[in-house]
Simulated scan of single mutants.
Amino acid sequence: MKDVTVQPGEVFIATAPQRARTLLGSCVAVTLWHPLRRIGAMSHFLLPRRATPRGAELDGRYGDEALDWMVRELSRRGVVPRECEAKLFGGGSMFPRHAGPMSADIGRNNGEAARLLLAERGIAIVSEDLFGVGHRQIVFDLSDGSVWSRRAPVSKGAR
C-alpha cells in the first residue's frame, strides 16, 4: 500500500490501495470517500476562505476552494459528490494560554466553515474529530474509507 503525505494547502484524490496522511493543528482536513467506487479525496486547508478575490486557479489553502477542487476532480472521475461520505478533522487550539475574548479562534472557524461548506453542497458528514487542544495525525485508508486520528497534546511551552 502506498502512503502519501498531504501537506498544508494540498488536495489529494486517489483510489485504493493508497493511504493519505497529514498532520493538523488549527488546520482542517476534509476527507470524501465513495464507498462503491472506492475513490476518495483529502484536503488540508489553513483558512475558510480568501480575504482577497479568488484567482483563476483554485487554491487548496482555503476551505471553500479546496472543497470545490475536490468536488471538481471527483466529478471528473464519474463520482457524484453527494454520494460521498465526509469526515472532518482538526481545528485544534494550538496556543490555549493565549486565548481570550479578543483572540481569533482560527481552528474553530476552520471547523465550522468545513461543516457549512459540506452542508451547502449536500454532502453528509458521517464522522468528525474537531476542536480541542493540540494537534492530530490523520491517516485516510482509501481501501475502506476509514480514517484514524491520533491526538497529541500541546507542549508545555505553548500553554
Results as ranks from 00 to 15, higher is better:
R54N: 09
C27F: 03
D59F: 06
M102I: 12
P101L: 15
M42V: 05
F131P: 11
L24G: 03
M102D: 14
S75D: 00
F89R: 00
G122I: 11
N109I: 14
D59K: 08
E83C: 02
P35R: 07
F89A: 08
R54F: 05
P35D: 04
S103A: 13
I13A: 03
A113K: 06
A124L: 14
I123R: 15
S103P: 13
N110M: 11
C27Q: 09
R108D: 11
L88H: 00
E128S: 11
S127H: 15
L74G: 00
H44P: 07
E65G: 08
W33T: 06
V30F: 07
H98T: 12
S127N: 15
P53W: 09
R115F: 05
P101H: 14
E73I: 04
G91H: 02
H98V: 12
E128R: 01
L118E: 09
M94K: 11
G92H: 01
L116T: 13
E73G: 01
R61E: 00
P48C: 03
G25T: 08
A51N: 07
A114I: 12
E120M: 15
F131R: 13
L74C: 03
L32T: 02
L24V: 05
M102R: 13
A29V: 03
R115I: 04
H98G: 15
E57R: 06
G63W: 05
V11F: 08
G60E: 07
S43K: 02
A113Y: 08
